[in-house]
Design a protein around this nucleic acid. Structure first.
Lengths: 200, 200
DNA sequence: CTTCCGGCATGACAATTGTCATATGAAAAT
DNA sequence: ATTTTCATATGACAATTGTCATGCCGGAAG
């Protein structure tokens, strides 16, 4: 099978590509260091399958998966990510992703996952299966934007002017977010949202 | 040469070990998933050299390097890390680390670095060489502790009781840290300190 | 067509946060 | 022995933050 490896960390990308290429039934036909590159490569090289990191520059792996679904491209996607954040997993399922592995599974599982997915099956790290039932993102779009900026160290006034809101409104959103996430303050709120993948 | 690979992310650890092992002159004699394991393995297996991540559970790669220096163990250390934080690099140099690579260099560089270090030389990612002249950590021990807790979402009162300080004192430290780092508030201060490796 | 809800806004209030001036005792430097 | 420095503390003050009640508007649901 012909695969593309999309991963921004050079060393991991190189190592995975090299190892997969050693397998008899796998041929690595391209490597991408960011989401845009991955998308272009998939369109031009038309591989069977793409191993994709989530956190990448320009387009995240999930963005790419969603575009592939829109354009009905046949390339299957196996997500390979560091974090077991419930939001990621759910979004991936909706985007039709066929495999979802954590970066700290052993490498053997990657080869196995690729074969399983190529054969029409699925492959999911066991730690993740449960997350199907985990909490949905309780934050509204606005709350997320505001929280993201707050997490970057901006104050209410600054956030207000970037989003063209009044500073009171910003504080309202922040307050709501804090309560929804059961946090003590904006800092904890950002931490919680982040940990669950509700900001990306 | 006999090497140990210490890296908490299973997939990268496995991939690197497999690839290094393919080289004729390299033998991977052990793999560690955290700092303690790495230290024990180095003591029992006495390898020539250890490839080590910084951010690992229990003991960081830098902690391990420092202990090896104390005990005058001959095992040379090549640090392999994601972030180019000036604090890390400086601490590593002081700990007698011989090689320091970023995880997004190409893999070829890893093999090359190992050979160079094994032959008594050094190997440093070019992005890092400059950092020798970069700012030293301006924060005192106390300021760091306080800032770390603030970054975890705790308020002044909570920080105070954990560190057995008065809440006024905590606010003083925070205020100093904020000014030293030229930040607007504690959040930005944590971000800046973090980015420079001044909290780890 | 109402009713309800989401996004947006105000104003008021309390709590927390950030800044400063100042003080003490202990340790380090001179 | 004297001075400086550091960690700790206080109190006062202003700014920011978090909460709440309330109101308006437009669109979705009934």
């Amino acid at each position: 099978m012909r695969v593309i490896v999309a991963e921004d960390q050079g060393m991991l990308r190189g190592a995975l590509s090299a190892l997969l290429d050693l397998e008899d039934d796998i041929e690595v036909v391209g490597q991408a260091a960011d989401g845009e590159q991955a998308l272009r490569m998939i369109e031009t090289l038309d591989p069977d399958l793409c191993v994709m990191d989530i956190e990448m520059p320009k387009l995240t792996g999930l963005d790419v998966a969603e575009r592939l679904k829109e354009t009905k491209h046949g390339c299957k996607v196996v997500i390979l990510t560091t974090f077991s954040r419930s939001g990621y997993f759910q979004r991936a399922m909706r985007a039709g992703v066929k495999g979802f592995l954590l970066k700290d599974s052993p490498i053997d599982e990657l080869g196995a996952a690729l074969r399983s997915v190529h054969g029409g099956g699925r492959a999911v790290s066991p730690e993740l299966a449960m997350q199907l039932w985990e909490a949905e993102n309780p934050l509204t779009e606005r709350e997320r934007e505001v929280l993201k900026l707050a997490g970057a160290g901006l104050g209410a006034g600054e956030i207000a002017s970037r989003l063209f809101l009044s500073h009171g409104t910003v504080r309202n959103y922040l307050s709501e977010a804090i309560q929804k996430l059961d946090a003590k303050n904006r800092i904890e709120a950002t931490l919680i949202a982040e940990r669950n993948g509700w900001l990306g």
